[in-house]
Write a protein that binds this DNA or RNA. Sequence first.
DNA 1: CCCTGTGAAGAATTTCACAGCT
DNA 2: AGCTGTGAAATTCTTCACAGGG
Lengths: 226, 226
Amino acid sequence: MKRAEIPVPTIKRLSFYLRRLEECAGRGVRTISSKQLGDALGLTDAQVRKDLAYFGPFGHPGIGYRVKELVQCIRRILGTDKTWKAVLVGAGNLGRALAAYRGFARKGFELVAVYDADPRMVGQPLTGCDGKIVVRHVDELAGAACDLGARLGILAVPAEQAQDVADRMIAAGIRGIMNFAPVSLTVPPEVAVVGVDLAVRLEQLSFRVGGLLAAEGNPDSLQVED
Amino acid sequence: MKRAEIPVPTIKRLSFYLRRLEECAGRGVRTISSKQLGDALGLTDAQVRKDLAYFGPFGHPGIGYRVKELVQCIRRILGTDKTWKAVLVGAGNLGRALAAYRGFARKGFELVAVYDADPRMVGQPLTGCDGKIVVRHVDELAGAACDLGARLGILAVPAEQAQDVADRMIAAGIRGIMNFAPVSLTVPPEVAVVGVDLAVRLEQLSFRVGGLLAAEGNPDSLQVED
DNA sequence: CCCTGTGAAGAATTTCACAGCT
DNA sequence: AGCTGTGAAATTCTTCACAGGG
């Protein structure tokens, strides 16, 4: 098998395959066919096979894919077989909810520090996260990656401050940013950014329920996973 | 201009155009060229023009696009020129953070009720949201859309309950669901679903920073807005 | 027979490049 | 000159369809 260029859509679907496979593994399912996996996600069997085949011949003809084996492989591809340390900036409503979110730890992401610019927040302990994390002032962010070993940053500050904080994160050695602020960040090419803008998602929903196309009785696909 | 089929990627980008345009409008910018708008979002000028031209000849040759005019048009296309009423199910960490999130109201989404299955939650008032919203029991959801006029539902419950609650929402008349649970929902074709799975996004970030491709020194695009 | 991996065909999307308006 | 709207070309992605293994 050749190491071709992997399509971007394939990479996005990998996470959904993994999610479903982990669920199957939890239910004790041993093997799954491309058809079964695809049906659960609204994809064709050919799509599933082609996606997975980019990374190696994981399937077993006549059998399908071994669930536990495939889970391991996809985790390694996505990089979630290792533990990632992350810092969070912004201890407002959203930031605190994110800090308390169990899903991060479950996927191997460890929050090592939380920062905020508001002096009233600084020094407060965070509820919900098992560790004894205390909010620090954002000025202490410099060097965080070196000192704490963090390579990922979660950005949960207002739009106006997002670019500035992103710059500080990068200066501190952060290599990947999960951006909850409703702006497009400008970053050097070696830094990765994934955006999570709730307003944007809401607009997609609004469009599909009552936007221009829906108003014209268009029987389009109404599912948007990503 | 003919009413052709609009590409899905175009629809997704519309939200990002709008976000940028609203920011420009706020700074008093009157007109913007496809080049300027594209650069801010990492797209080509041709892409921007083609996307916008699907919906009408909004541009003015030699001038560009009038910002306020275009904001209005895109809002109408997306359906965010109207107010949408929504219910939220799940008053845990995430649910409460979402209820307090100002961005919803700012985009014209009005939260009219919040539900939870935990009896300890029921009856508690929600902090952060200006209204006097009290958590109700999820059994009261039936008929919510009729009674309160809600057409959108925000699903912030654990994965195990997500499908069941989605079914109840649909029975209650909800037509669009924003799903924060890490599962793919099965819904009738006339119901729209947009998923927001933080674990999935985190995996995308992990992949780009240290996954299989990154490990091989691949100089791919590291930006994922959506 | 059931299932995967894959070349080839087909469909969708992006980029190019240029006519035409200001 | 500067900029849009748009066919046509180029590219990317998905589906088809079948050879071959279990």
